[in-house]
Amino acid sequence: MTRIGVITFPGSLDDRDAQRAIRLAGAEPVALWHGDHDLKDVDALVLPGGFSYGDYLRCGAIASLSPIMSEVVDAADRGMPILGICNGFQMLVEAHVLPGGLVRNDHGAFVCRDQRLRVENNATAWTNGFDKNAEITIPLKNGEGGYLADAETLAVLEGEGRVVFRYLDVNPNGSLNDIAGITNQRGNVVGLMPHPEHATEEGFGPDTDAAMRNGTDGLTFFASALRALTLA
């Protein structure tokens, strides 16, 4: 069975939700620890959301120097599927695995809402199960989710189709170009602020037209990684 690791850092919150999402997608979740230099032979990795080190210094900055992050950076270079969610996205940015930076929401408030997104790149390891330009809804919950990059970086991301997710309806945090998530050049590493792991089981996801809390758009992220690994 495909093994997908979930790294727990001091202050991770959504590690168990991510493990549950992986199990629901049909893979085996493997708990990994920030202080180890051991990926336990997993096939893919999730860096979950939370508030590692209480967001001290900058969100994700201290965790990006955790012992296990040297293995994460090597795995990213080797092409392993890696998903950074929220604080995990911030860590990947601070570790320079993905470009740019994330700053406090422009309106100054914490946001928690079911967020519509457009999947603009369905060729990545974590989005290959979506139709191109699919519109999905998953929860968003952050205080520092404003995506920034310099003009040159932004032009490269846009030009190479590396903006994977864009906010629809409202820009909830002041992100440039409504960017919700990006990928690396190879498409194996994806980072986004919204939370796919919270939309993987009927009864516990966002509301849909059909029923309350029935949204499972997040499940496709994890199913995509399984598919990417099968095809690899």
């Binding site: 210094l57 900058r58 900055a61 120097l65 740019g100 930076g101 920034l148």
Partner: peptide, 8 residues
């Protein structure tokens, strides 16, 4: 390297 992030 650590105390600041040159992007922001």
């Amino acid at each position: 390297s650590l105390l600041s992030n040159s992007v922001i």
